[in-house]
Design a protein around this nucleic acid. Structure first.
Lengths: 137, 137
DNA sequence: CTCTTATCAGTAATGATTCCTAATAAGCCC
DNA sequence: GGGCTTATTAGGAATCATTACTGATAAGAG
């Protein structure tokens, strides 16, 4: 037993289930829900359990390998892209679009200073109608 | 029956319960959950039902009289301030702080242009440790 | 004061997520 | 490669927030 060298990664064994879940979230670009990941992974591992999908999604998010995202009135969803970016959520079709943009370090620092707090992360989500749904409405 | 003049307000009768729920959310500055509003309102109306609190919170939010807010790993909460502002959420004590700041119209328009979408609203939430919790940690 | 019906209290139902347990399989050691 | 330890799994039960349902109540128009 080695007391030093703390293990930051919560997942210690690379199981088929875990890598399949990670792979699914990374491959698909739809910001899938747990249920959707479950259906995707099932094609490869027909016996995987929904609880396993939930457990691994949570674990992978904690390790920073995927990102948890949540939008008003919707279920938790997952994003395979972990770098800083923002989201546009269509209130009609519930599609999530990545926005390649991010707050300036200055803006974040301003919040830290005014709050006297440390800011670890932030979420910026835009809501509205996407180009397709806007035409229909 | 008057076909014109659509009634935007979903709540048509001003009941004791409804005004008590609205009053509670407006008075308290803690961005309370439904459960917390329930306990607050109970002091005034001991027989009010939790379902009534939920129904009215939802209704009032739809009318724009209060605002629904949600933070990572937390329950839905409500904000009595409806004007544009942002939030800081302490991951440790779960306190929500209002930030008197808002995105420039230009930034929002940039998103609309790049997405070819219409942006109705946005949420900007900062996560971290507040000044008090930062000292403890 | 009456009457219509939106709203209520109370409780059952739902839906997403988490917990529990015996069985399984990573992956280290030989 | 074969054992061995134990993290992880499958499957189902349990939890928790929220919503739906139903007969009773009370807003508020006339």
């Amino acid at each position: 037993m080695i007391p030093n060298k703390p293990d930051h990664s919560k997942s210690q064994r690379l199981t088929q289930q875990r890598s399949a879940v990670l792979h699914a979230v990374e491959m698909v670009r739809t910001h899938p829900s747990a249920e959707e990941v479950f259906h995707l992974v099932r094609k490869e591992l027909p016996n995987i359990s929904l609880a396993t999908v939930y457990r691994n999604l949570h674990l992978l998010a904690e390790e920073g390998k995927i990102r948890e995202v949540q939008f008003e009135g919707d279920v938790l969803r997952y994003d395979g892209i972990t770098g800083p970016h923002e989201h546009f959520y269509c209130r009609s079709c519930r599609t999530v679009w990545d926005i390649d943009r991010s707050l300036s370090p200055q803006a974040i620092h301003d919040v830290e200073r005014s709050m006297k707090a440390s800011v670890e992360s932030y979420n910026l989500d835009f809501y509205g109608l996407c180009s397709v749904c806007r035409r229909k409405a």
